[in-house]
Design a binder for these strands. Structure first.
Lengths: 190, 190, 190, 190
DNA sequence: AATGAATGAGAATTCATTCAT
DNA sequence: AATGAATGAATTCTCATTCAT
């Protein structure tokens, strides 16, 4: 089978795209992405038929990675607040650890090159988290808001929090704490 | 060189840019913007030296318009919650009334073509609102968070709220109410 | 109206395309055509939206020119043979005078980039010549073949004749005479 | 390096090239040809060093096949007209039976990728037919035209005839008859 | 000042050919 | 020998900006 298509290369391209899109936006040249990935210009297109396909895959991978990170926290506490705090922490940790992934996700999120289909698939990866939110509502811990709305609130507050953590690193921990507090109060019942 | 003559043309270009960027993103051709503005391609460049300048001006104008809208609500109530509710209402009203302006602002906000300087100037237009938030903190109505953080929380929750209002118009009012509730609880003391 | 679109430039592009396609086939780069036309690469596309449009226009212009040349012979003799001989002579003269036009027309004729529509339009320019053939059939001078078939025979024999004239210029006149003789006998009655 | 092993593969590539070039012209990708031949992209180049070599070989094979077909008609009649009619019939039969071969030959014939050398070799395969034509001239049955000219006339009239047969199948037989009539009259003496 | 044609530096792909497997 | 991934030069077309009118 000649040279098999290498996962390493595919990942290198995705990683390069993440970095370059973070810096230059979705208008970044595929040539630049290829160069950063240490791959020939043409090679990029053996892994992704078009730039749009690359962008859509990237969006999905990042969404998947983020949702995966949020769930990785193991110990399923029975307390709603604890569980949400854990998820929030994982979210923020991920965003702070990988600022370019975060930035790129933001760029892709507002780009019209990401199809509705891809966006829907991205949302599906948050099904489990939405379920968690839903249970919390059912248990009475949270106000009666649609789980997807609660999830979106979580996302936007976490993003805002990370913006301030990045802009003012000296008080990063304060923002992290304060941000979760804001989120919890925003949706907790009472 | 002073300002070129016609404010009408300048405004037409800005309005066209708003519409076209909302539809196509910051990568939209200046030729398209000019056409929508009913102006020749070259004319655009007598009002804005470069595309980047146009984009930065547009960002600023929209930020100014938004902050202006938030403050336009006459009667300065002495109650923090009332004042914030009014500001929130104005914000959401503006965003719902001018969805392309909102979308364009989001596009520009994540674009690397908007300079730090422009972003700083954009923030300055929210000085008055931040002052209002600060007073509320001082009065004990709000938790002790930096006013800019509170302002950013307000912005991101309002955006999230409008996303859901647009996506699910049947329950728009519910989201509007629920969104403000979330915001208030997020930052109110206790 | 700024600079008006120049017919000179348009014609230069068409002429350049003729020359370059004759040499390199329809795969010839638009960049080469532009260079030969002494025009910027981008300029070509202000006159012809796509390469296909350029090729189709070129095909049509050449067909038009050829059919025009065939009819330019003035003196409408009443004798079928004389009229055909004149048309034939004009055809061959044109082909010998403009070998690249002839070659390019051949290239375009077999290319799938020329649309059916364009081909149909090209045929229409030969309406008058077909009518002439038709009359000759009606008058009994020609065998009863469909005029378009007779026209095609005329075309293919003229092309063959010109091939030999070009390949063996010393006997060019012999081929010209002999070719017409062949054509006339091919379609004359009895 | 001698010939590589499998004649089957070589033939499959040639057949695939015939089909693909007929459909897409000489610009058809080697990758497409390989795929149609059910062979790997790289394999094509172990049988033909370059695309040009493939194209030139193909031209030659088709010419050979065509000339072979024209001669395959057994019984060498002594009558010039009969012999030519037979050759003509074989020609047209071949062209109608293998329309892609015919189309591809036309494409290759006007392409600048076929070398003069190849074209000369292609002509050589018609030596025998030219000899036949020469004898007919010698016998007085044909007008005194160079045999190669007569041969070319035969070819171009047969092509024209087949074009009309293909375009208007209902009258295919009429064209076939009429076409030969035209050809014979074109070159017969008196 | 306004116009829109002219410019040429990219941009995303494509493709013949090479080469590791 | 066969495979198909890798390569990068070449191609068509776009677009911000300039400039003749």
């Amino acid at each position: 089978m000649a040279r098999p298509k290498s996962d390493d290369k595919r990942n290198a391209i995705l990683a390069a795209a993440t970095q370059v899109v973070a810096e230059q936006g979705v208008g970044a040249p595929t040539a630049t992405i290829a160069k950063v990935a240490a791959v020939a210009e043409g090679t990029l297109f053996t892994y992704f038929a078009t730039k749009d396909e690359l962008l859509n895959r990237l969006y999905l991978e990042l969404k998947l990675e983020l949702s995966g990170a949020m769930l990785s926290a193991g110990g399923k506490s029975s307390d709603a607040r604890d569980r949400l705090r854990l998820g929030w922490q994982q979210y923020v940790r991920w965003g702070v650890t990988y600022p370019e992934k975060r930035k790129t996700l933001a760029q892709l999120g507002v780009s019209d090159r990401i199809t509705e289909q891809t966006k829907a698939a991205g949302m599906r990866s948050f099904t489990e988290i939405n379920a968690m939110l839903q249970e919390s509502v059912a248990s009475g811990a949270l106000r009666d808001v649609p789980p997807m709305f609660a999830g979106a609130i979580m996302g936007s507050l976490a993003e805002t929090t990370m913006d301030f953590m990045a802009r003012d690193p000296a008080h990063a921990d304060d923002y992290a704490t304060s941000g979760f507090e804001a989120f919890w109060n925003a949706i907790a019942s009472k």
